[in-house]
């Protein structure tokens, strides 16, 4: 099977369209008959990453590469970056504004949820230079 590549632009503060990319990826994987557990994990991680872009990252890109053995999501933004990545990975730590919390997000669970649901996760960030997150999901068998 050839690698399928998709890329989506995610816009800062666009709560109306946030999540569309992840639902598109979910439907793509379902149409290709990927394992339902993998589809769910990919969708959750993609969605959390999209919400992070909308809330914190400024405009950014979410891309996905789908192959027979794995699914890889890469998320890149040109936002303010994360001063302390280790702290940001702790459940409950958040710098989200109240308006985001009122919408049910920004509780400091996004990155921990991504870590929990992906098979591999790497994050690199520097204040002032944006953030890059890679998530890998291995297919069973």
């Amino acid at each position: 099977m050839p690698v399928i590549h998709k890329s989506y632009h995610v816009t800062k503060n666009d709560f109306i369209h946030a999540g569309e990319a992840s639902i598109h990826v979910k439907n793509l994987l379902k149409s290709l008959n990927y394992d339902s557990d993998l589809v769910r994990r990919v969708a959750i991680c993609g969605y959390e990453a999209e919400m992070n872009l909308v809330m914190h990252g400024g405009d950014g890109e979410l891309s996905v590469d789908v192959s027979q053995s794995k699914v890889v999501i890469e998320v890149t933004d040109k936002g303010p970056g994360i001063a302390d990545v280790e702290l940001a990975m702790q459940e409950g730590y958040s710098t989200a504004k109240d308006e985001y919390r009122e919408m049910g997000f920004g509780a400091g669970m996004g990155l921990p949820n991504i870590k929990k649901n992906s098979d591999e996760m790497t994050i690199s960030s520097e204040p002032g230079s944006g953030t890059h997150v890679t998530m890998v999901f291995f297919c069973k068998g």
Binding site: I23, Y47, M103
Partner: peptide, 14 residues
């Protein structure tokens, strides 16, 4: 929470 994200969250979580 009556937002469009409640529907997307439901869809993604199953």
């Amino acid at each position: 929470l009556v937002t469009i994200q409640a529907v997307r969250t439901a869809s993604i979580s199953g």
